[in-house]
Design a protein around this nucleic acid. Sequence first.
DNA 1: CGATCCTATTATGTCTGAGTTATTTTGAAA
DNA 2: TTTCAAAATAACTCAGACATAATAGGATCG
Lengths: 235, 235
Amino acid sequence: MTDRPDPSRRIHGTIARDLGIEIVSGKRKPGEVLGGEIEASAALGISRTAYREAIRILGAKGLVESRPKAGTRVLPRRHWNVLDPDVLAWTFEGEPEEQFIRDLFELRAVVEPAAAAFAARRRTDEDVARMREALDGMARHTLATAEGRAADQQFHRAILAAARNEPLAALASTVGAAVRWTTKFKQRKHELPRDALPDHERVCEAIAAGDPRAAREAMTELLRLALGDLGLTLE
Amino acid sequence: MTDRPDPSRRIHGTIARDLGIEIVSGKRKPGEVLGGEIEASAALGISRTAYREAIRILGAKGLVESRPKAGTRVLPRRHWNVLDPDVLAWTFEGEPEEQFIRDLFELRAVVEPAAAAFAARRRTDEDVARMREALDGMARHTLATAEGRAADQQFHRAILAAARNEPLAALASTVGAAVRWTTKFKQRKHELPRDALPDHERVCEAIAAGDPRAAREAMTELLRLALGDLGLTLE
DNA sequence: CGATCCTATTATGTCTGAGTTATTTTGAAA
DNA sequence: TTTCAAAATAACTCAGACATAATAGGATCG
């Protein structure tokens, strides 16, 4: 088991994360200036070098902009790369706006069914085999166990791979991660979890059968039911 | 007219852009090491500081990863934020893979009709007014003129605003920009441009009427026709 | 002979302090 | 009041040193 050391553990990475969280959480509002490098770095007890590199990271994600004399300002939300994996993760470190979470679920409901439809057109036998393998894993364990949820993710990844669309897969993967972070805390523990396997099997069979329309609808229904398990609904 | 000075004109920004283009264009392949900071910065005739900040920017976009002793490596495509506006722009600085362009058009065909459907549910009178204003602009000038194309963009922006979904709008806006970059070079100049206004009006009316299904279908058709004008088709 | 641990190596990481450059602001002139 | 030039200021760049961490190599032990 190779433990992968996260390079973001360096000083510049941690500062970028801290400041990023302060920005996306609204603690530092758009237009606000992040006091000069010398003061800010001194206040954090770090060097200007490390502080500047942190600012570069935030700038690369559209959160801030620096210019001589004017200073470093938080940019308006319109410029933020809200779908950047880090920005999304930082957003969920705090308490995201209810509206934002709904937006993400909605986006997921747009993207994943489309991916399922593409997968139905392009899947190979290996794709279907991988999907069935994941379904086996979900059947052996359940969504109540970590292994079962891992199998669920594997199922979705297999679909995205079969869709043969890199940007679409990247997007769906990022949005999926964000959605999982929210659901992790909102699970209804008092109710016994509904058996999600039949929904997944319908998606799998539609893709295996090469029926895009059925795959799209089955995935839409799967997401709707999963959302219902959380006591939520769209519209 | 305030000319907005682009902060990316600093050294770290230009180096990040140059290296970024080399990476996304395939000139520097995943796994490859970007020679040590001292040599690399010396070769570029800049300081280590500026070079390191460029690397931080690339790292924030998932293109590279640095670790002590191991050096800075180009990450596999799977880690790239391909939908990051800068990464996308850098991709189109070179000659993007045909497949990648098709993927983007496909993604657009997924996202924009969905946005139109949401807009049909949520539009206010002001939203509709803005859309009609944009259509007027398209009618006065045509898509052959810069003003006409600006009006076209305004129309799409109005729809995204009416959809009331920030991440969806950000995504569609980014993808739309990328799609425009490609079409800018592929215009069929020898043929007289088809009048795109009726397609747009159908979308506008469906949204104004609050008919999500019709709005989705009208937008799908609009994109299909626009694609046809380029001599392209999906599937 | 193989596995484990230690050590030397090396590239990134961090720090300091100086000087440069680009904006903004100020104020003077028209 | 407008225009333009100069001063002020913050980010930007540079140079050189030291710290840290991951890797590679070798020594030790089973």
